[in-house]
Structures are given as structure tokens and as C-alpha cells.
Amino acid sequence: MLRYLFKRSLILLATLFVASLVVFITIEVVPGDPASYMLGLNAQEDTVAALRAELGLDKSKPARYISWVSGLLTGDFGTSYTYRTPVADMVRDRMWVSLPLAIFALLLSTIIAFPAGVYAASHRGGITDTIVMAFTQLGVAIPNFWFAMLLVLLFAIKLSWFSAGGFPGWDAGFFQALKSLTLPAIALALPQASILTRVMRSSLLDVLNEDFMRTARAKGLTRRKALWKHALRNAMIPVLTIIGLQFSFLLAGAIIIENVFYLPGLGRLIFQSIASRDLIVVESVVMLLVMAVVLVTFAVDLAYAWVDPRLRGTR
């Protein structure tokens, strides 16, 4: 068990290290001179020089990398060139929109997918199974941002149940804020729930065909009890993989969905920064998102060991 943990942690650190190198090289090394890139073609010589000094571009590349990474580790993400405020502050505000949105969506998708997948698998070939599968076909094929637009059209414009966009902030009250995240979360969650339902169903069907399910039935367990007590935990292994992958899709999806609902999250920040060529913000936000994805993968690896004793090794 400890060995497994240790190996996973090493891989986590190595992945983060190489990922940070990739981000640094793509954004700071490849464009040549980031300062003149950020300022555009018409910049004055002395403004460029000032920015170069501010960014520390006179230092060597390895030195710049080290100071960037050590900044990241201590919470100092640098200063935005366009807004003249610390990137860390901007990110912190926006994270309180993006992260709750992704988690809200993940919860929704799991809550929908589990019962649907289990029911469809245990009533395989029945009418409900067929209907659930047809819906998931649609759910997998629908672009989430278009689905978001349809939700706005129906619930915000026609029915006026929700506002069409914007975010009042958590200060306006928990439920007020949650309400404004509801439509975006549904738009994100339904396509993911469809995928998860399909995986849950097929994984469960595979397990139901295993020999040990026959043993369980031979003990005298009913079909339903055998499913709950023996099949479900074994079926979780592929499902966990998908949940882990989905988190990165949800984060990426959130970036797009925020644009449909005008939510002040990391997605809006990143597009504004691209438009204003604010490489410092882009660099840090991208790295932050990569870190989130890698950490979730790590958490999934730990969950594997919890579900599957074979990974913990023999005693």
C-alpha cells in the first residue's frame, strides 16, 4: 500500500514538473521576446525595456523558470500587466466561481448517472433500458454550450425562472449564488451524465457475467442482493477512471460555459487575458488548471487502491 502511494506521489510530482516546463517553454520561450509580444507592434522602445525589466526578462531562462515556479509555490503568481493587480488576487476571486461550478456539475452528473446506469443494467433489454440508452445517445452527442443556449432560451427567456447570465457573488447569499450556477451546471452535467451512465451500465453488465456472481447466486442471494453486495464495487473500477477524466472535461467545459452565461470565472479571465495579450495571467491560469487535473488523477489513483485490494499488494 505504502509502496503504491509512494510511486503514485512520485509520478504526480514528476508530471507536475514536466507540465510546468511545457507551459513555461510554450509561453515564455517560444514567442522570443514576451515583452514586445505583449505590447504589440507599435510599442515604444522604452516601454518595452521597462516591461522587460519588470518581468525579469534580462535574467537567464533557467533563472526565470525557477523564480516563476517558486512564485507559484508560495502563492505569488506575478502581476497582471493589463490590470496592474496581483494575478493571485484575480485568480482567487474567479476560482470561487469556476471550482463550485465544476463540483456542482460533477455531483449532478454522478447523482443522475448512478441510478440510471444501475437500473438500466439490472433491467437490461427492457423498455426503460432502451429509453435510458436512447437519451444517453442524445446526451453524448449534444454540444454543451449549445445545450446551455437552449436552456437560456427556455428557462430564462421564455419561462423567466432563472436569469440569463451573470453572477451575484457569494455575498448575495448562498442560494442566490447557487441559483445562478444551476443552469450552467445542468448544461455541463447532462452530457457527462450520459457518458457516465453508459460506462456504469456496461461495466456492471461485464461484472454480472463474472464467475463470482454465479458463486454469489449459488449462496442463495437474490439477483438484486448479489448486484448490490458483489457487483457494484467491482464495477466501480472503470467508473472511477471516467469520473477522473470527466473532471478535466468539466474544467475545460466550464471555461466555455462561463462565456455563455457571462460568469466571472477563470474562463472569462483567460479569454480576456488572451485578447489583451496578458501572457502572465494566461501562463498562471493554465498551470493552475493543469495542477487541478493532475491532482484529481492522483485522487482517482488513491480511490482505486481503496476499491481494489489487489492494488494494495499481498501481505
Partner: peptide
């Protein structure tokens, strides 16, 4: 396989964002 894991850490959208930014 480790290279694979690394790429999986960058959803397509993030790669596009980095390329576009530059």
C-alpha cells in the same frame, strides 16, 4: 506511458489556449 499521462493533464482546450495566446 508517462508521456501519455503528461498529455492527459492538458485538455485540448488548454493546449488551444496556450497556442492561441502565443
Amino acid at each position: 506511458m508517462r508521456g501519455n499521462d503528461l498529455v492527459f493533464a492538458f485538455p485540448a482546450l488548454l493546449i488551444a489556449i496556450m497556442i492561441t495566446a502565443v
